[in-house]
Each structure stands twice: as C-alpha cells, then as structure tokens.
C-alpha cells in the first residue's frame, strides 16, 4: 500500500525537496558534448510530433519510451535538448572504471536488473523530486524485430507515484534512411496520482502500467504507422 505523493512539486511530508543545481561541475562533460553536438541538431534532430497539446518540459518528469535501437538515448537527448536527461541504465554499463566515468558524466542512474535495490529506486525518485527529467525504457531491452510495444515493467508507476511527477510517454520510430531523421511522438503527460488514488493496490499499479502501454501504442497512429 505505498502512499502516493500527491504534491505536484515532489514534496515529501510537506517539506520542499532540494532542487537540482542549475550549474555544477558534475554537468561539465555532459554540457560540453551537448554544446559541441548542437550543430548536428540542424541535420539529425528528430522530428517532434505532438499527439495532443505540446507538453510542458519543465520540472520533474518520468519520460518513458519504446526501445528500438542503441541510438535511442541520443535521439531522446536531441528531442529535448533544453533538458539534461538522466537515463536509467543497467549497472553492467558501469562495470569498468572508464565506462563508469563516462556513464556518471552522462548522469545515468545504474540499476541492477537481477537484484534491484531500494538505493536505485531512491536515486530515481530523488532526482525526479528535485525537478530532474529522468528517462527510461521500461521494456528493459532493445526490440529490433518491430514487435508491438508491450511488457512495460510496472516499476515505473511506483517511481512516478513516489516522486509525485507525471509520466511523459514518447514513441520513437525507426530511421527510414541511415542519416534520416527519426520521428518521435509525444503523448500528453499522465498524472498517475489522479489515476491511482491515495493508496493504490498492486492491481491498480498494474492497471496504471497497462494504461501507459495503451497510451504509448496509441501514439503510433500519429507517426503514420
């Protein structure tokens, strides 16, 4: 019976959460690459399509997307260049000191998929509560066979509910040509607190996950699929 965080700003027990700093040494490499890659946006920027109103990209939000290729995180970063996205990634990417340095610099949050711990869960909800945009691929793997979207893990619902932030569904489509532009469809932010209520049962959490999958699937028609 996890308690839903109903505050719009990620408040915990009435206390305002610390906001993520606007500037920090920790962002240096990430921002340098963002700036140096900016000219590439002119050619490769994904095409944004909105299924409804244009979402407000400010504040804490959990961005959930389908996962169709290794370039998806880069596409998402180019889609929302005004935000620093924190990607949830498997901890195997942090295995060596060098890769850990790079993945840390890119502000990723490592999770152990085999033995998930509350430390990772809290890292994600804390970042969301601080007003960060956290992006994840809830299918947990890359689908290269064009299967229908499915198997979103319900954990994303618990994360968004605990942090009190909306879920923003995004649908990425495949590149038609090697250097072509990706089309990405944004759904409207989903307020799970309103959907799940004060103390949702596990069945309600699963229902919310199914609802997000349906919303994600519905985005395909806007992409011309």
């Amino acid at each position: 019976m996890p308690e839903t965080n109903n505050s719009k700003s990620g408040e915990k027990n009435g206390a305002k959460p610390k906001k993520a700093p606007v500037l920090s040494f920790g962002y240096l490499l990430y921002d340098l690459i963002r700036i140096s890659a900016a000219p590439g946006l002119i050619i490769f920027r994904p095409k944004r399509i909105y299924a409804g109103k244009k979402p407000d990209f400010r504040g804490g939000m959990l961005i959930v997307s389908n996962h169709i290729g290794f370039s998806d995180p880069i596409d998402l970063m180019m889609l929302i260049p005004e935000r620093r996205l924190r990607f949830v990634c498997m901890k195997e990417f942090w295995a060596s000191r060098t890769s850990a340095f790079w993945f840390r610099s890119f502000l990723t949050i490592p999770v152990d998929r085999e033995n998930f711990g509350m430390d990772s869960f809290r890292q994600i909800t804390d970042r969301l509560g601080e007003g960060c945009a956290v992006a994840m691929f809830p299918e947990g793997h890359i689908d290269t066979e064009g299967n229908p979207i499915g198997g979103f893990k319900s954990g994303m619902v618990l994360m968004a509910l605990k942090a009190g932030v909306p879920v923003l569904p995004v649908l990425l489509t495949e590149r038609k040509k090697p250097f072509g532009r990706v089309k990405a469809v944004f759904g409207e932010p989903i307020d799970l607190a309103a959907f799940c209520g004060e103390r949702p049962s596990f069945a309600k959490i699963n229902e919310a996950a199914s609802y997000i999958i349906e919303k994600e699937k519905a985005l395909a028609e806007y992409a011309g699929h």
């Binding site: 996890p2 998930f116 509350m118 618990l158 596990f202 959490i205």
Partner: peptide, 14 residues
C-alpha cells in the same frame, strides 16, 4: 520483481 518492490515500499511505510 515489481511485487517485491511494492511490498518493500509498503514495509518501509508501515
């Protein structure tokens, strides 16, 4: 795994 996560959050709160 999500059921386990749900349970742990419930335990932490209770």
């Amino acid at each position: 795994s999500v059921g386990m996560l749900y349970t742990v959050i419930g335990i932490e709160e209770m």
